[in-house]
């Protein structure tokens, strides 16, 4: 059995987009948000997070800006672009249907 909290392949991008839906965050903030929002179940590896952020930025779904963090350090803040918002909506819809279907299958006798 795989490690607890490991992410299903391909869902990391969606979670990162979701994390940024309410406003700009730096990488650490994204990881923390996912961790907390999942009631400490999901745990994002840094080794996967940053490649994902850069990949999304390259695809034009995110933009990045340097700004000051709460404790006044320089940090790179990511935020959604219009394309990112659209992508998030699509992914969310797809996820809703998939998870509903899987749940349905698993509950059947």
């Amino acid at each position: 059995m795989e490690k607890q909290g490991e992410l299903v392949q391909g869902t990391l991008d969606m979670l990162v987009l979701k994390a940024l839906a309410r406003g700009a965050k730096h990488g650490y903030g994204v990881a923390e948000w996912i961790h907390e929002s999942s009631n400490d179940v999901l745990h994002v590896e840094e080794g996967a997070l940053y490649p994902a952020l850069h990949r999304l930025e390259l695809r034009g779904l995110l933009t990045a800006e340097w700004g000051a963090s709460q404790n006044n350090r320089r940090a790179k803040f990511y935020s959604l672009t219009a394309a990112g918002r659209k992508k998030l909506a699509e992914e969310a819809e797809y996820w809703r249907r998939m998870s509903g279907a899987i749940a349905h299958v698993m509950q059947s006798v």
Binding site: H26, G27, Y50, L58, W66, R73, R74, A75, K76
Partner: peptide
């Protein structure tokens, strides 16, 4: 197109890109 233009920009700012990556990791 976005991707290619970003990459071309990166091609000319290789040094800065490296520095920023470094800084981002350090912050984390």
């Amino acid at each position: 197109l976005t991707e290619i233009s970003l990459r071309i920009k990166a091609l000319f700012r290789r040094r800065r890109l490296d520095r920023e990556l470094e800084e981002e990791m350090a912050f984390h």
